[in-house]
Protein backbone atom coordinates (compact mmCIF):
# COMPACT_ATOMS: atom_id res chain seq x y z
CA UNK A 1 0.00 0.00 0.00
CA UNK A 2 1.12 3.56 -0.68
CA UNK A 3 1.00 4.37 3.02
CA UNK A 4 2.75 6.81 5.32
CA UNK A 5 5.14 4.04 6.34
CA UNK A 6 6.74 4.15 2.87
CA UNK A 7 8.70 7.29 3.69
CA UNK A 8 11.96 6.85 1.79
CA UNK A 9 12.85 10.17 0.12
CA UNK A 10 10.24 12.30 1.92
CA UNK A 11 11.19 15.80 3.04
CA UNK A 12 10.19 17.86 6.05
CA UNK A 13 10.89 15.58 8.99
CA UNK A 14 13.92 17.55 10.13
CA UNK A 15 17.24 16.24 11.42
CA UNK A 16 17.75 12.85 13.06
CA UNK A 17 17.62 13.38 16.80
CA UNK A 18 19.60 11.01 18.95
CA UNK A 19 18.75 10.44 22.59
CA UNK A 20 21.90 10.04 24.71
CA UNK A 21 22.01 6.92 26.89
CA UNK A 22 18.72 5.77 25.45
CA UNK A 23 17.03 3.03 27.49
CA UNK A 24 15.79 -0.11 25.71
CA UNK A 25 12.21 0.86 26.51
CA UNK A 26 10.58 4.12 27.52
CA UNK A 27 8.30 3.06 30.31
CA UNK A 28 6.62 -0.12 31.39
CA UNK A 29 3.89 0.02 28.74
CA UNK A 30 6.42 -0.17 25.89
CA UNK A 31 7.98 -3.28 27.44
CA UNK A 32 4.58 -4.88 27.70
CA UNK A 33 3.59 -4.05 24.12
CA UNK A 34 6.86 -5.55 22.91
CA UNK A 35 6.51 -8.69 25.04
CA UNK A 36 2.81 -9.18 24.27
CA UNK A 37 3.45 -8.81 20.54
CA UNK A 38 6.19 -11.46 20.60
CA UNK A 39 4.18 -13.75 22.89
CA UNK A 40 1.09 -13.52 20.66
CA UNK A 41 3.23 -13.91 17.54
CA UNK A 42 4.39 -17.19 19.11
CA UNK A 43 0.81 -18.50 18.84
CA UNK A 44 1.46 -18.91 15.11
CA UNK A 45 -1.77 -17.30 13.99
CA UNK A 46 -0.18 -14.74 11.68
CA UNK A 47 2.98 -14.15 9.68
CA UNK A 48 5.54 -11.40 10.25
CA UNK A 49 4.25 -9.70 7.10
CA UNK A 50 0.69 -9.70 8.42
CA UNK A 51 2.12 -8.05 11.51
CA UNK A 52 3.81 -5.35 9.43
CA UNK A 53 0.67 -4.77 7.36
CA UNK A 54 -1.47 -4.41 10.50
CA UNK A 55 0.85 -1.63 11.71
CA UNK A 56 1.13 0.30 8.45
CA UNK A 57 -2.51 -0.01 7.34
CA UNK A 58 -3.74 3.22 8.93
CA UNK A 59 -4.66 6.73 7.81
CA UNK A 60 -1.34 8.46 7.07
CA UNK A 61 -1.92 11.24 9.61
CA UNK A 62 -2.48 8.76 12.40
CA UNK A 63 0.52 6.65 11.41
CA UNK A 64 2.83 9.66 11.46
CA UNK A 65 1.54 10.90 14.83
CA UNK A 66 1.84 7.51 16.51
CA UNK A 67 4.90 6.53 18.47
CA UNK A 68 6.61 3.29 17.51
CA UNK A 69 5.06 1.10 20.18
CA UNK A 70 1.65 2.71 19.62
CA UNK A 71 1.90 1.33 16.09
CA UNK A 72 2.77 -2.08 17.52
CA UNK A 73 -0.16 -1.91 19.93
CA UNK A 74 -2.55 -0.96 17.13
CA UNK A 75 -1.20 -3.83 15.01
CA UNK A 76 -1.53 -6.37 17.81
CA UNK A 77 -5.09 -5.37 18.72
CA UNK A 78 -6.08 -5.43 15.05
CA UNK A 79 -4.72 -8.93 14.48
CA UNK A 80 -6.13 -10.35 17.72
CA UNK A 81 -9.64 -9.30 16.67
CA UNK A 82 -9.18 -10.09 12.96
CA UNK A 83 -8.02 -13.63 13.74
CA UNK A 84 -10.80 -14.15 16.28
CA UNK A 85 -8.42 -14.60 19.23
CA UNK A 86 -10.33 -11.97 21.17
CA UNK A 87 -13.61 -10.22 20.37
CA UNK A 88 -13.94 -6.47 19.92
CA UNK A 89 -16.10 -6.48 23.04
CA UNK A 90 -13.42 -8.26 25.09
CA UNK A 91 -10.87 -5.74 23.86
CA UNK A 92 -13.09 -2.85 24.92
CA UNK A 93 -13.88 -4.21 28.35
CA UNK A 94 -10.62 -6.03 29.11
CA UNK A 95 -12.72 -8.94 30.41
CA UNK A 96 -12.61 -12.42 28.88
CA UNK A 97 -15.95 -13.92 27.89
CA UNK A 98 -14.31 -17.35 27.96
CA UNK A 99 -10.95 -19.08 27.68
CA UNK A 100 -9.18 -19.39 24.34
CA UNK A 101 -8.79 -22.79 22.72
CA UNK A 102 -5.17 -21.93 21.91
CA UNK A 103 -2.39 -22.48 24.45
CA UNK A 104 0.10 -19.82 25.37
CA UNK A 105 3.77 -20.26 24.55
CA UNK A 106 5.26 -21.38 27.89
CA UNK A 107 8.15 -19.43 29.41
CA UNK A 108 10.56 -22.35 29.12
CA UNK A 109 10.15 -22.41 25.34
CA UNK A 110 10.76 -18.71 24.72
CA UNK A 111 14.57 -18.84 24.48
CA UNK A 112 14.52 -21.71 21.99
CA UNK A 113 11.81 -20.05 19.88
CA UNK A 114 13.83 -16.84 19.67
CA UNK A 115 17.03 -18.70 18.89
CA UNK A 116 15.41 -20.71 16.13
CA UNK A 117 13.78 -17.68 14.57
CA UNK A 118 11.90 -18.42 11.43
CA UNK A 119 14.00 -18.91 8.29
CA UNK A 120 12.41 -17.48 5.14
CA UNK A 121 14.39 -19.40 2.49
CA UNK A 122 12.49 -22.02 0.49
CA UNK A 123 13.43 -24.51 -2.22
CA UNK A 124 11.52 -23.78 -5.43
CA UNK A 125 11.56 -25.41 -8.88
CA UNK A 126 11.46 -22.22 -10.93
CA UNK A 127 14.94 -21.23 -12.13
CA UNK A 128 16.22 -17.74 -11.32
CA UNK A 129 15.35 -15.22 -14.06
CA UNK A 130 18.27 -12.94 -13.30
CA UNK A 131 21.98 -13.32 -12.58
CA UNK A 132 24.48 -11.08 -10.82
CA UNK A 133 25.38 -8.25 -13.21
CA UNK A 134 21.98 -8.17 -14.97
CA UNK A 135 20.23 -4.82 -15.41
CA UNK A 136 16.68 -4.86 -14.09
CA UNK A 137 13.83 -2.37 -13.88
CA UNK A 138 11.42 -2.27 -10.94
CA UNK A 139 7.86 -2.49 -12.24
CA UNK A 140 5.46 0.41 -11.93
CA UNK A 141 2.68 -1.00 -9.74
CA UNK A 142 0.68 0.28 -6.80
CA UNK A 143 -0.72 -2.69 -4.92
CA UNK A 144 -3.28 -1.77 -2.26
CA UNK A 145 -2.07 -4.56 0.03
CA UNK A 146 1.32 -5.01 1.71
CA UNK A 147 4.39 -4.79 -0.46
CA UNK A 148 8.12 -4.37 0.17
CA UNK A 149 8.68 -2.48 -3.07
CA UNK A 150 9.08 1.12 -1.88
CA UNK A 151 7.67 3.91 -4.04
CA UNK A 152 11.05 5.58 -4.48
CA UNK A 153 12.44 2.67 -6.47
CA UNK A 154 9.50 1.89 -8.78
CA UNK A 155 10.26 2.34 -12.46
CA UNK A 156 14.00 2.66 -11.82
CA UNK A 157 16.80 0.60 -13.32
CA UNK A 158 19.48 -1.07 -11.22
CA UNK A 159 22.03 -3.87 -11.29
CA UNK A 160 21.66 -7.25 -9.59
CA UNK A 161 24.54 -7.63 -7.12
CA UNK A 162 23.43 -10.69 -5.11
CA UNK A 163 21.06 -13.58 -5.54
CA UNK A 164 19.75 -14.66 -2.12
CA UNK A 165 17.92 -17.77 -3.36
CA UNK A 166 14.15 -18.05 -2.99
CA UNK A 167 12.48 -16.40 0.01
CA UNK A 168 8.89 -16.34 1.26
CA UNK A 169 7.17 -13.60 -0.76
CA UNK A 170 6.17 -10.79 1.60
CA UNK A 171 3.19 -9.61 -0.46
CA UNK A 172 1.57 -13.07 -0.38
CA UNK A 173 2.60 -13.76 3.21
CA UNK A 174 0.91 -10.52 4.30
CA UNK A 175 -2.29 -11.80 2.72
CA UNK A 176 -1.97 -14.97 4.81
CA UNK A 177 -0.34 -17.28 2.26
CA UNK A 178 3.05 -18.33 3.61
CA UNK A 179 3.57 -20.99 0.94
CA UNK A 180 4.62 -18.75 -1.94
CA UNK A 181 8.33 -18.07 -2.44
CA UNK A 182 10.18 -16.23 -5.19
CA UNK A 183 13.81 -15.60 -6.03
CA UNK A 184 15.14 -12.65 -4.08
CA UNK A 185 17.88 -10.36 -5.36
CA UNK A 186 19.90 -7.51 -4.01
CA UNK A 187 19.76 -4.72 -6.58
CA UNK A 188 21.98 -1.61 -6.56
CA UNK A 189 20.65 1.69 -7.89
CA UNK A 190 22.89 4.69 -8.39
CA UNK A 191 21.89 7.79 -6.45
CA UNK A 192 21.58 9.66 -9.76
CA UNK A 193 19.16 7.04 -11.09
CA UNK A 194 16.94 7.51 -8.02
CA UNK A 195 17.32 11.22 -7.28
CA UNK A 196 18.51 12.75 -10.56
CA UNK A 197 20.59 15.89 -10.09
CA UNK A 198 19.86 15.81 -6.33
CA UNK A 199 21.73 12.51 -5.92
CA UNK A 200 24.92 12.62 -3.84
CA UNK A 201 26.76 9.84 -5.65
CA UNK A 202 27.04 6.34 -4.31
CA UNK A 203 24.32 3.74 -4.42
CA UNK A 204 21.23 2.44 -2.68
CA UNK A 205 20.79 -1.33 -2.37
CA UNK A 206 17.41 -3.05 -1.93
CA UNK A 207 16.35 -6.68 -1.63
CA UNK A 208 13.68 -7.21 -4.27
CA UNK A 209 11.67 -10.31 -5.19
CA UNK A 210 11.37 -11.55 -8.76
CA UNK A 211 7.77 -10.32 -9.30
CA UNK A 212 8.91 -6.74 -8.58
CA UNK A 213 11.41 -6.86 -11.46
CA UNK A 214 11.56 -6.95 -15.25
CA UNK A 215 14.58 -7.14 -17.57
CA UNK A 216 15.99 -3.74 -18.52
Amino acid sequence: MNGAHDMGGMHGFGPVSVEPDEPWFHGEWEKKVFGLTLACGGLGQWTIDQGRYARENQPPGRYLQSTYYELWLHGLETLLVEKGLVTADELDTGKASGPSNLSALPADRVFKALQQGSPYTRAIDTPARFAVGDRVRVINAHPKGHTRMPRYVRGHVGTVVMHHGAHVFADASAAGDHSIAHHLYNVAFTAEELWGPDGQGGAVHLDLWDPYLEPA
Partner: peptide, 11 residues
Amino acid sequence: EIKVWDSTAEL
Protein backbone atom coordinates in the same frame (compact mmCIF):
# COMPACT_ATOMS: atom_id res chain seq x y z
CA GLU B 1 31.49 6.02 -1.96
CA ILE B 2 28.42 5.61 0.26
CA LYS B 3 26.33 2.49 -0.18
CA VAL B 4 23.02 2.56 1.69
CA TRP B 5 21.29 -0.77 2.31
CA ASP B 6 17.50 -0.58 2.62
CA SER B 7 16.37 -3.73 4.50
CA THR B 8 13.31 -4.48 2.38
CA ALA B 9 13.28 -8.29 2.86
CA GLU B 10 14.46 -10.65 5.64
CA LEU B 11 18.17 -10.09 5.00
